[in-house]
């Protein structure tokens, strides 16, 4: 499949608490971008004591060209699903990068330029299970990121899920997409649509 947009090197970090499904979120998004969209993607994640001890981190590097250095070092997008994660990783966000937070869990944003949605409560109230929170985030990001094709990402999501939980996750994905569009506005992703911003290095 043809890549919808040329990317030089786009770095995303998902961060939050263990159990929020952060690694799964990163894996599904990575797979969707790599196999569905045809980008080059490297996904790395936190291991070891810190991964067991409550916090969780998962990074994606996305590019139209082969990726040499696989780790994220200067983030274009930071998704923080806990206050601690937000505090820890905000310094790695490059200037002009975008911060997305779980607005109920991140009470103090280090900047007033951020996008927030109460992902957990949305999943709990509108979908019926809090565990679908990560899929709501995926839906929102699919709206936010101009190089993500909503339909392709949804298909990719459905292809990795067991049939039992497919329907509910599709619902969560659509919810996230819809709310992001409504709350964040149609032009929220324009920051990356600008060619100059995308071709750094």
């Amino acid at each position: 499949m043809k890549s919808p947009q040329e990317l030089d090197r786009f770095e995303i970090r998902f961060s939050g608490l263990g159990g929020q499904g952060i690694i799964t979120l990163g894996k599904i998004m990575g797979q969707g971008l790599a196999l569905g969209h045809g980008y080059n993607v490297t996904q790395t994640q936190s291991y070891g004591p810190e991964a067991r001890g409550g916090s969780s981190r998962c990074d994606l590097v996305i590019s139209s060209k082969p990726i040499s250095y696989p780790k994220a070092e200067s983030l274009d997008l930071l998704v923080a699903l806990s206050q601690e994660a937000c505090n820890t990783y905000y310094p790695y966000l490059k200037s002009g990068g975008v911060l997305v937070v779980e607005s109920d869990l991140v009470k103090q944003s280090p900047t007033n330029r951020f996008l927030g949605l109460p992902f957990t409560n949305l999943a709990k109230d509108k979908i019926g299970i809090a565990q679908a929170m990560n899929t709501v985030v995926l839906g929102s990001l699919s709206f936010l990121l101009p190089f993500v094709n909503q339909g392709t990402m949804r298909k990719s999501l459905e292809s990795v899920l067991p049939s039992k939980i497919k329907a509910i996750n599709t619902k969560a994905f659509n919810l996230g997409y819809r709310l992001a569009k409504k709350q964040w506005g149609d032009d929220v992703g324009d920051v990356w649509r600008d060619e100059e911003d995308l071709t750094r290095r």
Binding site: K27, G30, A34, L35, N40, V41, T42, Q43, T44, Q45, Y47, I67, P70, K71
Partner: peptide, 9 residues
């Protein structure tokens, strides 16, 4: 560890 724990296409 980096190579072993990186996911790629």
């Amino acid at each position: 560890e980096v190579t072993a724990h990186t996911r790629e296409k």
